[in-house]
Each structure stands twice: as structure tokens, then as C-alpha cells.
């Protein structure tokens, strides 16, 4: 099995992008709805509106973009948070795949690498808990709704700590990996 195939950087990027979209869907910024419409319009565009919180770490949108079945409420800050989550998840996924492909070099078994990533993945999914509660209609759990907002920063911290752990066990960053794999020059030494 070649290293490129084992580490599958494209798979990590795809997982990260998918998670970013899932996050935007879970907080209601991206929805699938028919019948399809096409169009876009701005609402009030101001710094005040951009920084107005709809909920903990969830911000007002300033535009509605209708792309067929997809309706995207464009909030610059929500998109920024989605990109952070997507990047961290991609980095974690890449770390897992790298460690799995290099168990001896990393001194961690392939299964351990997966198990080690689970808390991070669970934490990453926790931001969607409010949507799940509504979907499942679990009685009384809405009372904890205010706490769910804090799961997002916890997700980011756990994903970050897990990536540092992976790095400590020999998993290079995606940029380092790209430089090694594709022979790119390090800008600082070029």
C-alpha cells in the first residue's frame, strides 16, 4: 500500500468539507427545501448585524442565497466558524489516517489512532445536539439548550488538543505532509 493511498489526504479534506457543510446545516444556515428557487438578496448589511448573536456563537445572516433546493443564509461569522471546524476535522482525520499508515513510526496502533480520535469526533458532532433534540423530540431536554452553545468551543478545543497529540506521535501537519509528499519547497528556506 503506497503512503499517499494510505494517508488519503483528499479523504481528510473531503471529510472536513463535509463536516463544515453539516455544521452549517445543523445550525440552520443551510437548508434543503423545495420547490427549487434561484436567487439572492441582501438584508441589512452592517457590522452590528454581522456581530448580532442569534444564540451562543451563532450569528445573524446578512443575505439569503437560493441555489435550487439549497437555501443558504449567509452569515460571515458562522461561515468562519464552519471553516475552523472543517479545517480541524480535516487535520484530525488526516492525523488518524497517517498514524494508521505508519504504526511503527508513530508508536501507536492503527486502532488506537481511531479510538483516540473518537472524543474529538463526538465533540465535533455535539454542536448539532439541539437540532437532534428537536428532531427526536426528547421531552424536557430543551432545558439544557443554553448549555449546548458551549459545546462548540469545547469541540474546537478537543479537536485542537487531539491534533497536537497526533502531531506528538509523529503525524505531520497537512502542510508538512504536502511538502514531503509532493516535494514542495518550504517558503521560509526557499
Amino acid at each position: 500500500m503506497s503512503e499517499a493511498r494510505a494517508a488519503r489526504p483528499w479523504l481528510a479534506l473531503l471529510a472536513g468539507a463535509g463536516y463544515g457543510l453539516f455544521y452549517l446545516y445543523a445550525i440552520g444556515d443551510v437548508t434543503l427545501y423545495g420547490p427549487p428557487h434561484w436567487g439572492a438578496y441582501l438584508t441589512e448589511v452592517s457590522l452590528e448585524r454581522i456581530f448580532t448573536a442569534r444564540s451562543t456563537l451563532m450569528f445573524e445572516a446578512i443575505a439569503v442565497i437560493e441555489l435550487g433546493w439549497v437555501v443558504w443564509l449567509f452569515s460571515p461569522l458562522n461561515l468562519f466558524l464552519a471553516l475552523i471546524l472543517a479545517g480541524l476535522l480535516a487535520a484530525n482525520m488526516h492525523g488518524v489516517l497517517y498514524i494508521r499508515a505508519h504504526p511503527k513510526q508513530c508508536q501507536v496502533g492503527g486502532n488506537k489512532a481511531f479510538i483516540g480520535a473518537l472524543p474529538a469526533l463526538f465533540a465535533g458532532g455535539a454542536c448539532c445536539a439541539p437540532s437532534l433534540i428537536l428532531l427526536l423530540g426528547i421531552p424536557g431536554l430543551g432545558a439544557f439548550g443554553a448549555l449546548f452553545g458551549w459545546l462548540l468551543p469545547i469541540s474546537i478545543v478537543v479537536l485542537g488538543i487531539n491534533r497536537i497529540w497526533q502531531h506528538g506521535h509523529g503525524a505531520p501537519s497537512m502542510l508538512e505532509y504536502a511538502r514531503q509528499r509532493f516535494g514542495l519547497n518550504n517558503p521560509s528556506t526557499a
Binding site: T31, Y33, E44, V71, P139
Partner: peptide, 24 residues
């Protein structure tokens, strides 16, 4: 405000579905 007014986050009334239809 930017909202998807075609979607009700709790379900629907025409016909009744989701939260409005029953459950806890």
C-alpha cells in the same frame, strides 16, 4: 432579516407535523 421563511424549524401546520402534531 435573513430567514428561510419556507421552513418551520418545529414542523408544519398544513398538515400538522413534527412538534405540532404530538409527542412531548
Amino acid at each position: 432579516y435573513a430567514r428561510n421563511y419556507r421552513r418551520d424549524p418545529y414542523g408544519g401546520y398544513n398538515p400538522r407535523s413534527g412538534y405540532y402534531a404530538g409527542g412531548g
